[in-house]
């Protein structure tokens, strides 16, 4: 599914990713953890094609398609989804219109027919339920006036609607209270399938209580320095990152 090899990327003159390797197979949920400044969000942004990052070396492909050669919209059309840490407000852009444009752009790229208004609304109502969202949300402008929790739920709702192959959740747990976290986690769990992979980028172990990962990675100074099972996350929770970093330095 996702194959990242020796990925190096800079912001300005500063190298943030320093040879990152990662393989995610279909249906797997990977957690990428690490201390602040380790490059977790940069990795999410570089994969999604955001401006402001320069990839200097390495490769990233999704089902064999070279992601780095594609525009952000083409990556999304290939089945990549980024749930934003800070979802962006789009004043005046109606949510329904936005969702329909997104879904139909992706369907078109896949060679599927665009959905008509009726089937679209039916689909959207079904997906709203998964995230316990009210359909008044559809009449509002994208993310405008949404609470922090609503914004994060809206991201997962979009993911439910767009049905990506690979979803990257960038600190989706940050700023959520326990109830909102549970709803978001339920939403993600409902979307788990043998064909869909998920990367959870997170600072805390808390989210992993609700979404159980298959693999846990520790990112430090732009490289993955440790990979393990879900027990690694528990160990990190208990002992912090210091011991792994010390071992890394010793090695």
């Amino acid at each position: 599914m996702l194959s990242v090899k020796g990925l190096r990327a800079k912001v300005g003159d500063e190298e943030i990713l320093k040879g990152l390797d990662l393989t995610v197979r279909p249906g797997e949920v990977h957690a990428i953890m690490g201390p602040n400044g380790s490059g977790k969000s940069t990795f999410a942004h570089v994969l999604s094609g955001r401006d402001g990052y320069e990839v200097t070396d390495g490769a990233a492909s999704l089902d064999g398609v070279d992601l780095l050669a594609l525009s952000p919209e083409e990556r999304a059309q290939q089945g990549l989804f980024l749930a934003f840490q800070y979802p962006v407000e789009l004043p005046g852009v109606n949510n329904t219109y936005f969702l329909k444009a997104a879904l139909n752009s992706i369907r078109k790229a896949r060679g599927e027919e665009e959905l008509d208004a009726v089937s679209f609304l039916r689909l959207i109502r079904e997906k709203l339920k998964i995230l316990h969202l009210d359909d008044s949300l559809l009449k509002r402008a994208v993310n405008v006036g949404f609470s922090g929790g609503e914004k994060k739920r809206n991201e997962i709702f979009q993911m439910a609607l767009l049905e990506p192959k690979l979803a990257i959740l960038d600190e989706t747990d940050s700023g959520l209270d326990i109830d909102a976290l549970r709803i978001v986690a339920e939403g993600v769990n409902a979307l788990r399938s043998p064909e869909r992979s998920v990367i959870l980028v997170t600072h805390y172990q808390r989210l992993l209580d609700y979404i159980e990962p298959d693999v846990v990675h520790v990112l430090y100074k732009g490289r993955i320095i440790r990979t393990g099972g879900k027990e690694l996350a528990l160990e990190l929770e208990e002992r912090g990152y210091g011991w792994i970093i010390d071992e890394e330095h010793a090695a």
Binding site: S48, G49, R50, D51, S71, P72, E73, R75, A76, Q77, F81, L82, F84, P87, V88, L90, P91, G92, V93, Y97, F98, A101, A102, S105, I106, A109, A141, V142, Q158, L162
Partner: peptide, 26 residues
Amino acid sequence: MLFYPRARGIAEPLARRMLCLGFAGE
């Protein structure tokens, strides 16, 4: 604001138009 719709698969020209219409919508 331009990146967000693009990350949802919406091509840049349409994303731009959408944001402009949002601006004009008021």
